[in-house]
Design a protein around this nucleic acid. Structure first.
Lengths: 228, 228
DNA sequence: TCATTCAGTAAACAACCGTTCTCCCACTTT
DNA sequence: AAAGTGGGAGAACGGTTGTTTACTGAATGA
């Protein structure tokens, strides 16, 4: 029992994860194309050369981060789509899920929003591919309902793209409303640490309300799509 | 007549513009937070120290680029909104205008899409402020029509945000379909240089069709908003 | 015409970068 | 128990970075 798959491999994946965590942390305040190899290894407490044992590039680490950030989302998407409630309940559930996810993994969301159009090609492509899979899932979930209503396959995909893009936008909007962790300057250090959260809470509620209304607009448009 | 506002100032703004152009060019393949000061001055053919005569930071140059990229767009927006045609014509005109703008100023659009959630705070804020003005303009243009239909001010703004966000997304989508300038690798150098454009043209048409359909969905949703 | 202003130069600075070596030693396999 | 594997250490490399300094010389204004 002392070796599940080998002590060696376990330690390796441990430092690999440490590198990913350090990278994600540093990426909260800069973009991937400016993230230094030494910067990451320094934060982990490991020699610069050790980096190459796990990743070829910084771009390579970036792609790994994409999988980590977006891979776990598929379950959430599936859970939302599985709800066979009415439109209004599904809208509420979607916005709530996005809101919770942003609060739970802010760094992951920030990374995706930042690097989706960022300066590193392989990472952009990885994000695009993963978001494409999301669109496929959403389209598949809508297919049964909409095909019966006479929707074409490409129109279904068009609608799914609209939904996914809007969810990404909503996530980014939630992020901007989140409290700023780098507000610990020299002055007003005696302030209530929860002050930022108290100020952000209404902003977050306002953003949630906007996102819900926008989803409602899209939902209405979908209902009347075949009237033309 | 030999001095409109001084030969000196003219030359200064000439190199300032050269710095902006060089920066924009280099930013096509990386993000602002990794763009080096020396990199820019080298491309312009000027001493590194000369940079400080025009900008304090790279972030400073970034905000200047935001104004250059987004400032000229207000006229386009206003022109689109001024068209008092029907919904379908307005949708067509909007997508056409976005498409033409992306083709005319690809680097500007790429810069905005990339740095909107990028790693440089002041630039992010400048973009957000400018996009906020766009939302205001769109909201103002819709106000007369929608207020008469019983829309609240915040619902109008919510709809305007949806439109602006969708235009930005469409612009970014057009950009990804554009031919890749860095495809001049060693191999297949004898290929028809217009091949990429011929391949991109259908992709662009497909994206335009998707964008139009999505705008149509939103438009339908707007029409039935007050049914609830 | 002469003194002033100031955009741009040239050089030097310490700090940092990515990458490549050689080596070590805990783990793994036989 | 011995041989082999491989993650990580440590040092060194050539090169680049942002910033400061003292300077030159052409456009400027009196």
């Amino acid at each position: 029992m002392s070796h599940t798959v080998g002590v060696r491999q376990a330690q390796k994946q441990k430092t690999r994860q440490a590198l990913l965590d350090a990278g994600l942390r540093l990426l909260e305040e800069q973009s991937l194309s400016s993230l230094g190899l030494r910067e990451v290894t320094r934060l982990v407490g490991v020699a610069p050369a050790a980096f190459y044992r796990h990743f070829r590039d910084m771009a390579d680490l970036g792609v790994a981060l994409v999988e980590e950030a977006l891979g776990s989302l598929h379950d959430m998407i599936r859970a939302i789509l599985a709800e066979q409630n009415g439109d209004e309940e599904r809208i509420e559930g979607t916005v709530d899920a996005v809101s919770r996810h942003v609060r739970a993994y802010p760094a992951h969301v920030r990374f995706i929003a930042r690097e989706r159009h960022g300066g590193v090609r392989p990472v952009r492509e990885a994000i695009a591919a993963e978001l494409g899979r999301f669109v496929d899932e959403v389209a598949a979930a809508f297919a049964l309902q909409l095909e019966a209503d006479g929707w074409s396959a490409e129109d279904i995909r068009m609608l799914a793209e609209l939904y996914v893009d809007h969810m990404v936008m909503a996530a980014a909007a939630f992020l901007e409303a989140a409290p700023d962790r780098s507000a610990a300057t020299d002055a007003d250090a005696s302030d209530d640490p929860a002050e930022a959260d108290r100020a952000a809470a209404p902003a977050e509620a306002r953003i949630a309300a906007t996102a819900r209304s926008q989803l409602r607009i899209i939902s209405l448009g979908r209902q009347h799509w075949r009237d033309a």
